[in-house]
Amino acid sequence: MVRTLIQRTYRFYRKYMALLKMGWAIVIAYRSEAFIWMIGSFFQPLVSLFVWMSIAGDGTVGGYSTADFVLYFVGVLVVGRMTGAWDIWHLDNDIRQGTFSNKLLRPFHPVHWNMADNLASKLFWLLLIVPVWTVLALIFPGLRPPISPLFYLYTFISMMLALLIRFIIGYQIGMLAFWTNRAASIYVVYEGIHLFMSGRIAPLSMFPSWVISLAEWLPFYITVGFPVEMLSGQLTDPVLIGKYFGLQCIWLTVLILLFRLEWKWGIRKYSAVGG
C-alpha cells in the first residue's frame, strides 16, 4: 500500500521532471522572445509607478511615500510576472484546432503540460530577476526591502500559491472553449478586473472600502497585492498574514474542486461534439 504510493509518487515526479525539461528547452529555444515578453511586462508597473510618484511628490498618498511606491511597484513587476498565466492562449487554440485530442489520448492529464510550461518560464524569470535586483539593491538603497529573512520566505510561499491560483483560474477560463469560442475574450475581461482588484495598478488601500473588501475575499488581492505588500514591508501584522494565507489555501482548494467538475463536464461536451 505504502510502497505503491511511493512508487506512484516517484513516477509522477519523473513525468513532471520530463515535462519541465521540455518546457525549459522551449524557453531556451525561444529565449529572445521570452526576453521581449518580459520587457513588455515591465511597462504597466513602471507607468503606474511614475503616475503615483508624481501624485505623491514630496508628501504621501494613502500612507505611501515616493520611496514606498518605488518598492511597491518593483514588487508588482516581479510578482505580477511570476504569478501571471497565459496558458489560456494555448489551451483555447488547442481545443478549437482539435490538437487537444493528442494530449487527451496520452495517459497523463493535459493540465500538467501547461503547468510544466508555466513553471519553466517562471524559473527563467526568477533566474534573471533575482541577480538583477540584487545588483540594483546594492547600488540603490531604496530597492532594499526593509524585511527580515523570514518575510522573504513568506513572500516566496505566498507567491507560489498565487501562481497556482492564477494558473487554475486561467485554465478554467480556457476550458470554456469547450462550450464557446469566446473564451479568450472572457479572459481579457477577467484580466482587466484583475488589474484593478489585485493591486497591480495601485495599492489596494487607495480604493473605496467596499472595493477593498471585495478584492480581499475574492481571489484578487491574494494573487498579487498580498505577496507584494509583504515584500515591500507594508504588511507585517501576523494576524492579517495568517488570514491571507488561509484565504489562499481555501481558494486553492475551492478552485481545484471546481476545476475537476468543469473538466468532467468539459470532456463530456468535447467528446459529444468532437475535436
Binding site: L19, M22, I26, G98, N102, R106
Partner: peptide, 21 residues
Amino acid sequence: KSQLVWDLPASETFLIHKEIY
C-alpha cells in the same frame, strides 16, 4: 495533426513519452 512538439527535436517528445507511458 502532429503530436510532436513543434519547436524541439523529436527526441524530446520521445523522452516525454518514455516517462508518460
